[in-house]
């Protein structure tokens, strides 16, 4: 993963809320929703403001006091997963982007790898009846009754 390419949340299709150390995400384009755990709750607000993987790693090291240990492969794998799920997308930095903030290290606790759980059970709600024809009036016809 390009460490200097900014990642942004795929708005407006994706909405999310940080709640008690987890993040609930909803993707309106796909009908899929997600639970982010571990350090995901610290990383998501950074992605909402636009952040590079390098900046996220630096912030995590600062917040969790991680002087040693290589968290980059772990972080890269997780961020790639977010990109694959179309939750975030690479983009260019804007001049007005504020520096992302993390809570002070004492509030964060011990580092745990970010996790992503995916739920597909709502997708059928997006797969409703297609429109087959539109009348001269501009309104759709309902598909003909088979009998």
């Amino acid at each position: 993963m390009d460490q200097d390419r900014i990642l942004r949340v795929n708005t407006p299709a994706v909405i999310g809320e940080v709640i008690d150390g987890d993040v609930v995400l909803i993707n309106f384009d796909t009908g899929t929703y997600y639970l982010l755990g571990g350090a995901g709750a610290e990383i998501w607000p950074l992605l909402e403001r636009g952040a590079t993987p390098a900046a996220i790693e630096a912030r995590l090291r600062e917040a969790y006091g991680l002087a040693d240990g290589d968290i980059r492969p772990d972080l890269d794998r997780w961020l790639e997963e977010l990109v694959t799920e179309h939750l975030v997308a690479p983009g260019e930095p804007s001049p007005g982007d504020p520096a992302p903030d993390l809570p002070a290290a004492t509030e964060v606790g011990e580092y745990a790898s970010p996790t992503l759980s995916r739920f597909d059970d709502m997708q059928e709600m997006l797969l409703l009846d297609p429109i087959h024809d539109v009348a001269e009036t501009g309104w759709p016809h309902r598909p003909a009754d088979p009998d």
Binding site: E17, I19, D20, V24, I26, F28, G31, L35, M122
Partner: peptide, 17 residues
């Protein structure tokens, strides 16, 4: 149950409908 579990049960099914 955790707050996140409550939100997972409540929010997606509400906003998709």
């Amino acid at each position: 149950a955790s707050a996140a579990e409550a939100l997972l049960a409540l929010a997606p099914t509400t906003v998709f409908q």
